[in-house]
Amino acid sequence: MLSGGADHSSSVYREKVTQAYLQAIHTIDDRVTPFLGKATTRVLVQGSARRLAETYPFLHFLEKMPYTDVSPSVVHEQLGGVVPAQLAAGLDALLQECFAGLKELTGNLIAPHLLEEVRRQLEQTP
C-alpha cells in the first residue's frame, strides 16, 4: 500500500514505514472510536495483531501495549532487527486485518470511506 521509491535497506526506511502505518492506525482510531468506543477500537487493532502474530511475530509488541503509546524509541527497540520488507508486509497485513474486522462489525458503514482515507494517507508518505 505504501508508495515505492525509497531506500528499502536503510533503517530510515524502516522507521518511515513504521511511522506511516502507525499514523494509519491512529487515523483508524480517530475515526472508529467516536462510533464504536475506545475499548472496541483497541480490541480491533490488538486482536488483529494477535491473529497475525504467528505469521509476523514482531507484531506481538502491539498486543502488550496500547498502540497510542508506541514511540520512536519503542519502534527502534522492538522492530530494530526486522527486515524492512518483512516489516512493511506485516504492517500492511495488520491494516488489512483491521479493515476486515471493521467490516465484520459495521458492514459498509465506515470501512470503505476510511480505507480510502488511509490509502491516500499512505500514498502521500514520501
Binding site: 464504536l36 468506543g37 475499548a39 472496541t40 480490541v43 462489525l105 459495521t106 458492514g107 458503514l109
Partner: peptide
C-alpha cells in the same frame, strides 16, 4: 441484506 455487530462495553471492558 444488512447487519451491525456492536460490542457491549462496560467500563472499557467488552
Amino acid at each position: 441484506g444488512d447487519f451491525l455487530n456492536i460490542p457491549l462495553t462496560v467500563e472499557n471492558r467488552i
